[in-house]
Amino acid sequence: MTLVQRGRWLTGIGLLLLGGVYLRALAFTPVELHQGPAQKIFYVHVPAAWSSMLAMGLVGLASILYLLVRDTRYDRFAAASAEVGTVFACVMLTTGPLWAKPIWGTWWTWDARLTLTLMLFFIFIGYQLLRGAVTDPAVRARSAAVVGICGLVLLPFIHLSVYLFRTLHPQPIVLKPSAPSAPPEMVTTLLLSVGVFSLLYLGFVIQRYALGGAARDD
């Protein structure tokens, strides 16, 4: 089986499981007391945010590795991860306002996490624009790696600066020092969804990586 076929299989399984997660979230997970059905978007929004953060982290890591060993496979991986990360960032930035309008009464607010994710999206876009603007593959790989690393270092600063400034976003309910405050069914659905989104991320990245290799061989 070629790499691109493996990626397709993984994505297919991921999409099937995604259907299962939707079913579980809608039919077999309790409705939240205060937010009602609007809270269901949580099971898409949070995993998408997780996948886009994962994508950025891996872009940064692959960029560091590329500059250290100059293996073009790392560059191809970073490019693939950035593209997939952009898609997940779009999902996150679309589902967020849809939830925020009924719950917060506003589509958007300049809260720490919102600003952070918007900037993450812009870094992804800038990264890809730069890749498109450089023609020499070696120069492109080096420049993209520099932006990837800087972007990764920037994110904690953005979070910290906006966090000091103002925050309205719900505080962590699962990943926090004390026990999760959501009911166990909700936590299980969320974790399953995070797992499925990670699988989808992997499937998409493998396909994109394989395509990148094919484009290079031509």
């Binding site: 600003t115 900037m119 812009f122 730069l130 972007g151 920037l154 953005i158 910290l160």
Partner: peptide, 9 residues
């Protein structure tokens, strides 16, 4: 385009 996110903090 590349620099504006870095200007934010």
């Amino acid at each position: 385009v590349l620099l504006l996110p870095f200007l934010l903090p």
